[in-house]
Computed example of a mutant assay.
Amino acid sequence: MDALWFDPNTFGAWFGTIVGGGGGTLCGLLGALCGILSPQGKGRRFILGGMFLFFIVGLLLVATGLVALFNGQPYGIWYPFLLSGFVFAIVNGALIPVIRKNYEEAENRRIAAKSIRVG
């Protein structure tokens, strides 16, 4: 086994606070904004960009967790990376197509309303 990357207890506390608390809060706020803005067709680039960013961060966390696991790091080091990475990647990755569909529906409603007003 290689040398420990971090003290597992201290790392768990800080990682849980920063990534779990902070990242989870930001992801939740992005989801709330998505629920408000996507039916209106607003903020498409910001919302989809944010979701894609969280998806990429999740994949990077999973990769880091796998490297830690295969390097023989203790459970307290690799598990937080894998857990938060899978949550970020799966939740955001699964919602990207749904959000795109919401924006397409909003655009179709806008086009239909415009055609009713004009014609």
Rank of each mutant, 00 (worst) to 15 (best):
N9T: 15
T10A: 13
G12K: 15
A13K: 09
A13G: 10
A13E: 04
W14P: 10
W14M: 15
W14Y: 14
F15K: 11
F15L: 14
F15W: 15
F15P: 08
G16V: 06
I18E: 02
I18P: 01
V19A: 07
G20T: 11
G21A: 06
G21H: 03
G22S: 11
G22H: 09
G22Y: 09
G23K: 08
G23H: 11
G24N: 07
G24W: 06
G24M: 01
T25C: 03
L26V: 09
G28I: 09
G28Y: 07
L29A: 07
L29H: 02
L30F: 09
L30S: 01
L30C: 10
A32C: 02
L33R: 15
G35C: 05
G35T: 09
I36G: 07
I36Y: 12
S38E: 03
P39W: 05
P39R: 00
P39S: 05
G41H: 00
G41P: 11
G41N: 10
K42Y: 03
K42M: 04
K42G: 02
K42E: 07
G43R: 02
R44W: 11
R44C: 12
R45D: 07
R45G: 05
R45A: 12
I47S: 03
L48C: 08
G49R: 02
G49S: 09
G50K: 09
G50D: 02
M51F: 14
F52P: 03
F52L: 14
L53E: 02
F54H: 00
F55L: 13
I56G: 08
V57I: 14
V57H: 09
V57F: 12
L59D: 11
L60A: 13
L61Q: 11
V62S: 06
V62H: 07
V62Q: 06
V62I: 15
A63F: 15
A63Q: 05
T64K: 12
T64L: 15
T64I: 03
G65I: 02
L66P: 08
L69G: 00
L69I: 03
L69V: 01
F70E: 04
N71C: 11
G72C: 01
Q73Y: 11
Q73T: 08
Q73K: 05
Y75P: 01
Y75A: 08
G76T: 06
I77Q: 05
W78Y: 15
W78K: 03
W78L: 01
Y79S: 15
Y79R: 08
P80N: 06
P80W: 00
P80D: 05
F81I: 01
F81L: 03
F81R: 05
F81W: 15
L82T: 04
L82E: 14
L82R: 04
F86L: 14
V87Q: 07
V87P: 01
F88D: 05
F88G: 10
I90E: 03
V91N: 00
N92P: 00
G93N: 01
G93W: 10
G93A: 08
A94Q: 13
A94L: 13
